[in-house]
Amino acid sequence: MPPANDDPVLRSARREAVVVFLIWLAAMVYTVTYCYLNGYNRPVESLKFVLGFPDWVFWGIFVPWTVCVVVSFYFGATFMCDEDLGEELPEQEDELGLGGG
């Protein structure tokens, strides 16, 4: 359970990172599984096309890629929220051993 006084940027960044991780996982599991089951070691006679793509490329790569573009648009446009990144530490200020110029 994260501490209650978490920085709001940390809180939203963590939430977004978890969602992104799940999107990556879903894309990988679907794409690799579908392509392996439907696109490997088939006889050439079984070749079918959908919109010019071999069927397994269309359903296993083109469609999930299109979905990922839509999801990325949604994620960037609405799900991810804007935050104030805060003031930059003035140059030469070095309290607690932090950066500065």
Binding site: D7, A13, L85, G86, E87, L98
Partner: peptide, 20 residues
């Protein structure tokens, strides 16, 4: 795109400002 910017982007941008 979504992993490259969505996982670390916001936090790296914030921490680099907080630390200069």
């Amino acid at each position: 795109p979504i992993t490259g910017f969505g996982v670390l982007g916001k936090r790296m941008a914030q921490l680099s400002r907080k630390t200069g």
